[in-house]
Design a protein around this nucleic acid. Structure first.
Length: 486
RNA sequence: GCGAAAGUAGCUCAGCUGGUAGAGCAUCACGUUGCCAACGUGGGGGUCGAGGGUUCGAAUCCCUUCUUUCGCUCCA
């Protein structure tokens, strides 16, 4: 039941997004490109509002966080230092019988000791391993080195499919690299390989000293950035939830090593509150601590902000204790000192980092999913996007009740007067009811209608999107009436 | 990548016992309308994903291919 529902909501959102101009399929006239999406006129306003509110909440309203904007292309050494070249790929194998796919290292964890021993025996060079993980990594590397026979090796060693508890009919082991590669310069030799960044965070770490020095910030302080990131995901989907090109809002908070626990808790709560402040339903939001097995290679503790989509609780943002991992790594690989001089204790220290990393597109999808409602009005279906007025693409729509007796001129004048303060839209097409409904679907919180009374007493009606109730106010008080809720 | 489903108008879809395309909604223009998807008239919009084959004739049957969606592993 929930499953049927799920597809419907995403389908409805996809369809409305296209019809109304929120989000379009990328390269549509060429048949589309998998899981890439373009933002239309309404979508980009919504997205910009989300980003602006994030920037305001994280940067401009705080003294100890500054912004920056790094290039998408960076020196390849950055990704070697960060661990992405080494870790950001998955060795995968399929069982042709059960149609299940496994990460090879995860698959090994589910095998009996005998199977593991056989695999180790089949390897050419024998050596001792300090733990199972090291042993599994060696097996994975061996299988990848012998990709052409890897299927036979798995079958000969009787590797079990945990799903069926029987020997699997395995495919060859293949490596899926999650970073997009491209080339700088006209020659595509290996020396010119660069990556499209898989996260914006590294642009912050490599600029740590530049930013700290020029902004004269003292610990603890943060550096924030909004920008595109790219991951060659094997599986994408759920509309704009998981895409290969996406936008991040990240803030790296630098503090003393012993203080990360405190700041992790602080930022987790701050970030949860931020989503609430956008008007997202509170009981569909939660903070979830990561289990030890879920932690990324750089992180020792992590909280996810999750939203309850129709397809399940899903991550919107991760708040992670990255320790000194990133700065340590960059010091090691670049041979540059990335330390902070602590005057109080008269010592150079490597700051630890608490990271808050949110997906812009996921925030937009959350708002779309959370705002979408269908109601029955006089037996007719009414679609309403109940956006908070702060983030609505259009704040106020202005209508002449009829296209005569000077009403359009007055309505246009009101539109022009409001333009400087709010996002506005003038519409004189079709019946008044139809125009209200169009704006309901665009999520416009306020409707202003010029009617016959306007001609004599200079008042208009102000319509509330959610209740559809109207009240008469004077033209002069429109701005203040709207300002109260934006 | 593997598996499943699907590609016909801007959207949702019908047409698929082969006879060269329709509906509802949307959109545009004009008229009408004293406030919630009203009404009237008219208009624009499709080489039926692409290529090939069978046939006198293919949206419809066959083959190939492309793309999308969903699931599997992963993540913001």
């Amino acid at each position: 039941m929930a499953k049927d529902n799920k597809q419907k909501i995403i389908e409805v959102l996809t369809s409305i997004s296209k019809q109304r101009g929120f989000i379009f399929q990328s390269s549509e006239i060429y048949g589309g490109l998998g899981s890439t999406w373009d933002y239309g006129p309404l979508g980009i306003e919504l997205k910009r509002n989300v980003k602006n509110l994030w920037w305001k909440s994280m940067v401009t309203s705080r003294d100890n966080i500054v912004g920056m904007d790094a290039a998408i292309l960076m020196h390849p050494g950055v990704w070697e230092a960060s661990g992405h070249v080494e870790n950001f790929h998955d060795p995968l194998v399929d069982n042709k019988e059960s149609k299940k796919r496994y990460r090879v290292d995860h698959l090994l964890e589910d095998q009996d000791q005998g199977v593991i021993d056989q695999l180790v025996d089949s390897m050419d060079s024998k050596s001792s391993y300090k733990d199972d993980e090291e042993k599994y990594q060696a097996i994975v590397a061996f299988l990848l080195d012998n990709e052409n026979t890897s299927d036979e090796i798995l079958k000969n060693c009787k590797v079990i499919d945990p799903h069926t508890n029987a020997k699997g009919d395995w495919t060859k082991v293949r490596q899926f690299n999650l970073m997009f590669k491209t080339h700088v310069g006209p020659v595509s030799d290996s020396s010119s390989v660069v990556y499209l960044r898989p996260e914006t965070a590294q642009g912050i770490f490599v600029n740590f000293l530049n930013v700290q020095g020029t902004s004269r910030q003292k610990l603890p302080f943060g550096i924030a950035q909004i920008g595109k990131a790219f991951r060659n995901e094997i599986t994408t989907g759920n509309f704009i939830f998981r895409t290969r090109e996406f936008e991040q809002m990240e803030m790296e908070f630098f503090c003393k090593s012993g203080e990360t626990g405190k700041w992790l808790e602080y930022w987790s709560n701050e970030r949860l509150e931020w989503f609430k402040s956008l008007g997202v339903t509170e009981n569909k939001l939660r903070l979830r601590p990561h289990g030890p097995d879920e932690l990324a290679h750089y992180s020792s503790a992590c909280f996810d902000v999750e939203y309850q989509f129709d397809f399940g609780w899903s991550e919107l943002e991760g708040i992670a204790d990255r320790g000194t991992y990133d700065l340590d790594q960059h010091m090691k690989h670049s041979n540059k000192k990335l330390t902070y001089f602590d005057q109080a204790n008269n010592e150079h220290i490597v700051p630890a980092v608490v990271e808050s990393s949110a997906g812009v597109d996921r925030a937009v999808l959350t708002i779309l999913a959370d705002s979408f409602t269908q109601e029955e009005v006089n037996g007719e279906k009414r679609n309403v996007m109940k956006f908070d007025p702060k983030i609505a693409p259009i704040t106020a729509a202005i209508f002449p009740l009829f296209n005569k007796e000077g009403m359009p001129e007055i309505a246009k004048k009101i539109t022009d007067d409001l333009k400087n303060k709010f996002s506005t839209f003038y519409d004189a097409g079709g019946s008044i009811g139809k125009r209200y409904r169009r704006q309901d679907e665009a999520g416009t919180p306020f409707g202003i209608t010029v009617d016959y009374d306007t001609l004599t007493d200079n008042t208009v009606t102000l319509r509330d999107r959610d209740t559809m109730e109207q009240k008469r106010i004077s033209i002069d008080s429109i701005t203040s009436a709207i300002s109260d809720s934006v």
